[in-house]
Amino acid sequence: MEFYQRDRTLQPAGYTPIYKTSVARSPRQAMLSLQGSLSETTGPVFGQHELGPLDNDLIRNYAKDGDPIGERIIVHGRVLDENNRPVPHTLVEFWQANAGGRYRHKKDTYLAPIDPNFGGCGRALTDENGYYFFRTIKPGPYPWRNYVNSWRPAHIHFSVFGSGFAQRLITQMYFEGDPLIKECPIVHVIPDEDAINRLIAPIDLNGSIPLDTIAYKFDIVLRGRRSTLFENRLEGN
């Protein structure tokens, strides 16, 4: 079963001069529209046995001599498709800066310090209802070279698979109330205000653990599969 056509009015274009790096890295020719074949409608499958017990606990999965510094948070939600159906047993991966806005990465030279107890990445498989959750500390904003004084709002990067390669998605989750969201060129490559708002996770007091950890809720929607009414199902379709 192939996927609904991607709604490009909700997705960033490749060429977006407000985000300067996109200028030399964006194709200029039109993409060729391709109806789905098995190459697009299938995709890799992952199993729980491939993940470690702490893979979804960023507070503990790199701790050396204590907990990382920062606000303790839970991020949870569902991976759904455009048909409002859960996407079960799919791999969700996430990475982020530490509480000071510094990444544990060879190429990050920001002066805020590395946190010895924080790696900054994790992963989870959704359950049969498409539900995922992980625990971490809230990342800090950080400066980046776009304009001379550009600051990224606090964010967590997400990578999601779905059940077909055409659903593959990378995005970023932002935090309710962050004043840097409205200033950010990377956010504003998205041409649709509602689509931007759907990347902002609200505080979820009901999901929080009293006296311990506050929760943010973040649902992710992947493309839906089209039902093939009145169509001959040709082999390989």
């Binding site: 997705q11 991966e93 990465h105 790696g119 900054g120 990067h157 998605l169 970023q172 956010v187 998205i190």
Partner: peptide, 16 residues
């Protein structure tokens, strides 16, 4: 539902 908008993987995609 509407598909979630994509964002760049960024320079530190390797971490995740």
């Amino acid at each position: 539902l509407k598909e979630t908008a994509s964002q760049t993987a960024g320079p530190y995609v390797h971490i995740g």
